[in-house]
Design a protein around this nucleic acid. Structure first.
Lengths: 117, 117
DNA sequence: ATTATCTTTCCATAATACATGAACTATGGA
DNA sequence: TCCATAGTTCATGTATTATGGAAAGATAAT
């Protein structure tokens, strides 16, 4: 993840429609959702949705695969992680208490494996 | 953190100059840096930098305080955490392995307190 | 082959964001 | 008071981006 990559990801998310799409796909998980289904859920026209999906896809935040007539989009969780890592790089300059809230959230979702939290 | 808030944060970061400013301030920590110093470090004109700082400030990602003739900007780490939490909300739908890389990064920076990691 | 469904691409219009020069405000020192 | 330093604000030209109608591409069913 370099800065160009991070910028395209942030720009892709900095748009109400696309942010909703991304969050929807994050919740949907690896199985993803069909383009038309996303458009219906978010009450957006198919061509507009297609453009939004393209932007997210170009940023690498989501990936597309064809299944019959449908095109299924799914969030790319590794890319998302990489983006967040980029933002939190050197986040607290040795002062862990600064980003403790973030750690708490992430650990609530994904508890550390070593020993048990 | 609601979606409007998140959008302004993401939009603020989706700009090369502003992203560099933010990362610089994240590294600088709570002490922050003076506006002019930031402009010099990033080789940007003072008025352009002022506009960039305003956008970040309006998004709540950084905060300003006056010290003599200087205005010191510092990253707002809580806000940053809130934004990342917003993005990772329901991030893995019960599949912790999906966002494990992020957890690893955050924990490397801010190890969980309970027991020792 | 024809038709229906799902999605994308093309194109024109409208809206928004960006960088810069010039002017302005605020603080501190002589 | 006068001046220098530190930042900000304003106006403007430019460029990028978003949207939706119309048409086209791809797949499946009859």
């Amino acid at each position: 993840m370099d800065i160009t990559n991070a910028l395209s990801g942030l720009a892709a998310l900095a748009h109400e429609g696309r942010l909703c799409v991304f969050r929807l796909l994050v919740k949907a998980g690896p199985d993803g959702l069909a383009a038309g289904e996303i458009a219906r859920k978010l009450d957006t026209q198919p061509n507009t949705m297609s453009a939004q999906l393209l932007v997210l896809s170009n940023a690498g935040l989501i990936a597309a695969r064809r299944e019959g007539r449908s095109i299924i989009y799914a969030a790319d969780f590794e890319k998302m992680s990489a983006l967040l890592q980029f933002l939190t790089k050197d986040c607290c300059g040795g002062r862990p208490e600064i980003c403790a809230p973030l750690a708490a959230t992430v650990n609530a979702c994904c508890p550390p494996k070593k020993r048990r939290a």
